[in-house]
């Protein structure tokens, strides 16, 4: 049976173990970014909660993954460390994102899901890692699991069952 690695809010995981599944639960307005580095068969998943670390710099040291602006760099650093030999990580990297749900009739303040998605894209694009697939927005809370061996990403929600992205 596959080993499952659970990623909590503001956490990230990187794995090269083909038997492993990386899973994160109930994203709400949070966003999961999944990195599939094909040349080295390395998979990373991060559960980002908020767009900017400036609201609480002291959290960054313990949990950089909490924020879009610090989390992406933290997980890529770990992926680079694991997926040596060095080289451009962007080459052969496939990035997918899921989550970023919104509240119905939201205003700008409560628009965190949308702001998370935008913040992440602004960081990913200049790195040449713009998401090729996204399943974001709407009013559903998504659970995400990625099989490291196959790169298969399955999303689920209480009423919609399971689907792949």
């Amino acid at each position: 049976m596959a080993k499952t690695k659970i990623v909590g809010v503001g956490e990230f995981a990187v794995s090269k173990d083909p038997e492993e599944v990386i899973k994160t639960f109930a994203l709400g307005s949070c966003v999961a970014v999944i990195f599939l580095h094909k040349p080295t068969r390395t998979v990373g998943l991060i559960h980002v909660a908020l767009p900017e670390s400036s609201i609480s710099p002291e959290i960054v040291r313990d949990r950089p993954g909490y924020f879009a602006d610090t989390g992406i760099h933290a997980i890529l650093q770990k992926m680079a460390a694991i997926a040596m030999p060095p080289g451009s990580l962007a080459q052969g990297m496939v990035v997918k994102i899921a989550g970023g749900a919104n509240v119905m009739d939201t205003n700008n303040t409560f628009n965190i899901g949308k702001r998370n998605v935008l913040a992440l894209k602004k960081i990913l694009w200049p790195l040449g890692m713009g998401p090729v697939t996204e399943d974001v927005g709407g009013n559903i809370s998504r659970t995400v699991s990625v099989s490291v061996g196959t790169g298969k990403i399955v999303l689920s929600s209480p009423t919609k069952g399971e689907w792949e992205i």
């Binding site: 109930a26 509240v103 119905m104 700008n108 303040t109 965190i112």
Partner: peptide
């Protein structure tokens, strides 16, 4: 609570935000 992923189940995020809260609660984005 619902935004943070801890809704009850099928009804998570399926309710309207009443933006008139602004008259009673002061909350900026940050």
């Amino acid at each position: 609570a619902m935004m943070s992923g801890v809704g009850t189940g099928s009804d998570a995020l399926q309710y309207l935000l009443d933006t008139a809260y602004e008259s009673y609660i002061a909350l900026s984005s940050d």
